[in-house]
């Protein structure tokens, strides 16, 4: 690395260090990253861009694609919202209360990360089918869960839960007990302390967790297709439509839907990053 005199510090790519191995490790890491991750994604965007913006718009707005996108985004959003409530509750109970089996439950929260999605898919389908353990409870009332959008919702709740719990939990864990005591000495009831002091402090983490759960749910495939019924216009999700298009060798159509989904995931990521940056700037003074 050549160090320019005087202004050197400002124009060098890497700050000089006594440790060896920077060039080779960074070189390898970026090459591998480019080949495995970036190249395929660039080809995808390039392929879709051959259609032009109008072409993508046309594919994305055909009724069947629109319906699939709607099913994916609406059920993902609903599942993320349910997880926002119950994920926070689970995190609260795991952090604040001591009860037999707490550690086991804590470990179980990561099950959706560890269980292969196809396994979760057929298990949920078996449970919520009209003759399944849970489906049978609803069947007499004429309520169908599996093979309807309700089934997709169930699968997406399963998939998204750990994202919310695992982002809220550490923040709750590190929450200073003194802040709650301060609230009590100022005359607040326990409920006021929880709703005005503790929960508002969890909001940035909660938004992050919900956005992560939502982004994952939108792209989810394995756990959904077994329970969804996959009826076009009713319970067909966007990722399944990509697979269908591929099987028809409609690469352009598949790419167009994929690009729409990618864009939306990146918007979700952008939201996460700006929420975190904003809350860091305001509340942590960084």
């Amino acid at each position: 690395m050549t160090v320019a005199p005087v202004m050197g510090q400002r124009f060098t790519f890497v700050r000089p260090s006594a440790l060896p191995g920077f060039g080779i490790t960074l070189g390898f890491a970026t090459t591998y990253l480019s080949l495995i991750v970036l190249l395929p994604l660039i080809v995808l965007v390039w392929r879709a861009s051959a259609l032009g913006f109008d072409g993508i718009w046309q594919v994305a707005t055909t009724p069947r694609v629109l319906a699939a996108l709607e099913v994916s985004f609406v059920t993902s959003a609903l599942a993320a919202l349910l997880n926002a409530v119950f994920g926070t509750l689970v995190a609260w109970v795991l952090v604040r209360y001591d009860f037999p089996g707490r550690r086991l439950l804590d470990a179980a929260v990561d099950l959706p990360f560890a269980l292969p999605t196809a396994v979760a898919g057929i298990a949920l389908a078996a449970l919520y089918a009209p003759n399944g353990w849970i489906g049978a409870l609803f069947a007499p009332w004429g309520i169908k869960i599996a093979f309807t959008p309700a089934g997709i919702f169930i699968a997406l709740v399963f998939i998204g839960l750990p994202f919310v719990v695992r982002t809220v939990q550490p923040v709750l864990q590190d929450f200073e007990c003194e802040v709650e005591e301060a609230s009590a000495t100022l005359g607040a009831t326990r409920m006021q302390t929880v709703f005005r002091v503790v929960l508002p402090a969890l909001v940035p983490a909660l938004v992050t967790g919900v956005a992560l759960a939502f982004a994952r749910a939108v792209g989810e495939y394995g756990s959904v297709i077994f329970i969804a019924g996959n009826i076009p216009f009713v319970s067909e999700i966007a990722p399944l439509l990509i697979v269908t298009r591929l099987e028809e060798f409609d690469y352009a159509g598949a790419s167009a839907i994929a690009v729409v989904m990618l864009t939306i995931s990146f918007v979700a990521l952008l939201i996460i990053n700006s929420v975190q940056a904003l809350s860091r700037r305001r509340y942590e003074g960084a």
């Binding site: 200073e176 003194e178 802040v179 005591e181 301060a182 609230s183 002091v197 508002p200 402090a201 909001v203 305001r282 509340y283 942590e284």
Partner: peptide, 8 residues
């Protein structure tokens, strides 16, 4: 350590 409410 004052225990101020950070988000207020």
């Amino acid at each position: 350590h004052y225990a101020l409410f950070k988000h207020m």
